[in-house]
Design a protein around this nucleic acid. Structure first.
Lengths: 331, 331
DNA sequence: CTGAAAGCGCTTACAG
DNA sequence: CTGAAAGCGCTTACAG
């Protein structure tokens, strides 16, 4: 018992396949009477059009790929940004009647697979999520001619439109807040430098300090909690008297808080901590985390909608979203 | 300039389409000479087989759907389980050469879309992730005849194979640990009761207390941090002298910790807290969270592999994974 | 081992 | 407004 085909429905209804196709696709040029009888046959047989056949003839698939860079380490990550963005994008896409294909971009081997996949015409467009700068995938995809957009600015400019936070503005405001408090030794925990956002936040930190007479104190993390904890340990060793830390994301700030607690420092009395992103967890740290609110996290839904509009309109205009400092208790 | 077709490659190579198809699909019955010349034409033209055409004729799609229940509230959630499971499943699927289609299951309207989608033959199978008991989708999908498996036990038994934690064992061990410490007033924060896991963890809590002379103190949450914080407030009001709380997941435990801190209780001195799942964040709370390690989180990769084996083999044998109490400082 | 032909299940000009 | 026909780009028996 195979699934019924257009042919079967036509036979059952006593009309041509053309007519059945027309009512299925809601074309106006069909007699109400025919529509009736076809619909009856459709529900009677439980007919659902075959997707592959339809895709083949229409040359479109009605599906969009969400391409997420996957940490090469092979470690499974619970990164909240992944959940927020992927969920929001899926929702928006489904609301627009699109299907979503989730693609992980990581190893060189997977990159080839992704290329082939898109080249095979499986999707009508793609949205890249937080690709790192060293990944050649964006350039390759841009060359395919498929509509693509990026969630997060790419290292190579001009490849495709993107939506991103005002990383520079946000980081500057974070450091300024620390300066305003009279903090003297302000360190930073940077994200992985092959990511554009990490670069921008680090540069802004450097610039802000340079405008005073303070020196930069930098430790490198990779946007994970554990790397934040490790980096904080490193910083404390480098300068036991530091009195403030700007972490390039909240996850690393959470890690830093743990190290500070373990080392007996009080936050914010001894050391002030500011994060970036304002993920939900920032409300639950002890003390609650002062951080830069990123619209891409907090308002993932509207950000993603923005992005999908770029995709749909074939627009080439990127947008930078404003950030805002959320002052809580850690600084 | 359209993409080249099989036909074009055949013309270029001066052989039949059949032969091109054979070398593309790696069939052994093809002369090395022909293979050579075809491969040359393929790379020269940059040929990639059209997916839709292939799917149509082979009647399979090489893609598996990951169907995730989406909170109806419309709030975007950063639930770490979503990230862990979806990521792990995508990896495993891609490693097996499958494509993944991400589907959100929420509203009644979306349910129809999901049904249609699967009925349209877009996927070869599906993996459900943490569906709640009130959702009719699993029953509907089971009836389609498509291979389906569930990540998390379903309310209705027998519909499809599943992988789940030993929720009862884990929760029992958690409460027992509290009893062993001599805690007298042990409360619980339950998950949403239309989820099987929440039910099982609550029942185990009740059973464990019933075996002593203690009474149950229950507040209802929905597996989010904020609900845990609210529930804790409720519990403190109901019984200001409670000295222990078992939260049905770590996220709610994190919320409870915040409320306890705000109310001036020391953890674990005044109130002991135990969670469930052992998500990464449990290592970063103050104090670090004692919790039940769920293999579905901690070892998402192997759990998912298990599940996909069930899918592939058409097996009907579900598996329950053992849990383990991880004692840290909160209890 | 190779090629000509049929067919997967649709949509879409084209006549009528 | 309706139907017969062609065709989307592949795979796969079937002869040879």
């Amino acid at each position: 018992m195979r699934r019924p085909t257009l042919h079967a429905v036509a036979a059952r209804a006593g009309v041509s396949k053309s007519s059945v196709s027309r009512v299925i696709n809601g074309e106006p040029t069909v007699a109400p009477e025919i529509r009736q009888i076809v619909m009856a046959a459709v529900t009677e047989l439980g007919y659902v059009p075959n997707g592959a056949a339809r895709n083949l003839v229409t040359q479109k698939t009605n599906t969009i790929a969400i391409i997420v860079s996957d940490p090469p380490a092979g470690l499974v990550s619970d990164d909240p940004m992944f959940a927020m963005v992927v969920r929001a994008a899926s929702r928006a896409l489904e609301a627009a009647g699109k299907q979503v294909s989730l693609v992980l971009a990581g190893s060189a081997e997977s990159r080839l697979r992704v290329e082939q996949y898109l080249a095979a015409g499986h999707v009508d467009g793609a949205m890249l999520v937080s690709m790192d700068g060293s990944d050649p995938l964006p350039a390759v995809l841009a060359r395919t001619g498929l509509p693509v957009v990026s969630h997060g600015r790419l290292a190579t400019p001009g490849l495709m439109p993107y939506v991103d936070n005002d990383n520079v503005g946000g980081a500057t405001r974070a450091v300024q807040h620390l300066l305003d408090q009279g903090r003297q030794r302000i360190a930073t925990i940077s994200g992985p430098l092959d990511m554009q956002a990490a670069q921008e936040r680090l540069n802004a930190y450097r610039q802000a300090l340079q405008d005073t007479d303070r020196r930069s104190i930098v430790a490198l993390g990779d946007f994970t909690r554990i790397s934040g904890a490790d980096a904080m340990r490193q910083l404390l060793q480098d300068d036991p008297h530091l009195d403030a830390v700007f972490a390039a994301n909240d996850l690393m700030a959470i890690g830093a808080l743990r190290t500070l607690r373990e080392s007996g420092r009080r936050v914010p009395d001894d050391v002030a901590v500011v994060g970036f992103d304002d993920i939900e967890a920032a409300l639950y740290t002890a003390p609650p985390l002062t951080t830069v609110r990123s619209p891409m996290g907090e308002q993932a839904a509207s950000t993603v909608r923005l992005l999908l509009n770029l995709l749909a309109n074939g627009s080439a205009d990127s947008v930078i979203l404003p950030t805002e400092l959320v002052i809580r208790e850690s600084a």
